[in-house]
């Protein structure tokens, strides 16, 4: 049985920058636990001889040639941005530290 604790949810919420009320943390801990358990059932089917995969198809080495293709115009690139200035995406002040 996969377990997810209230602290796990609080930590994930912090990493994902989602502000959650204490009641939501309790609620989600049990809900996420159910989801994890459902997904974990796959492990019952996959035997030791089935290696973990990161892709559903048995593909490898899919490449493109190093060729330039047209980009979006800056207008198009910025069209869905909530705000822009000087042809750049405008974002609220960044809290916390420099990267």
């Amino acid at each position: 049985m996969a377990e997810i604790s209230r602290d796990d949810v609080a930590n994930l919420a912090r990493l994902a920058r989602i502000d959650m009320a204490p009641a939501e943390l309790d609620h989600l801990a049990s809900e996420l636990g159910v989801i994890l358990n459902a997904v974990a059932r796959v492990q019952e089917v996959a035997g030791q001889n089935v290696p973990p995969t990161s892709h559903p198809l048995p593909l490898q080495n899919v490449y493109r040639k190093d060729e330039v293709t047209p980009s979006l115009t800056p207008e198009a690139a910025l069209s869905a941005a909530p705000a822009s200035e000087e042809q750049r995406f405008k974002v609220p002040k960044i809290l916390g530290e420099e990267a």
């Binding site: 200035e85 042809q87 750049r88 995406f89 405008k90 974002v91 002040k93 960044i94 420099e98």
Partner: peptide, 10 residues
């Protein structure tokens, strides 16, 4: 970054 009001991204 400290003291900035907002940031612009390219």
């Amino acid at each position: 970054i400290h003291g900035a009001d907002y940031s612009l991204l390219d």
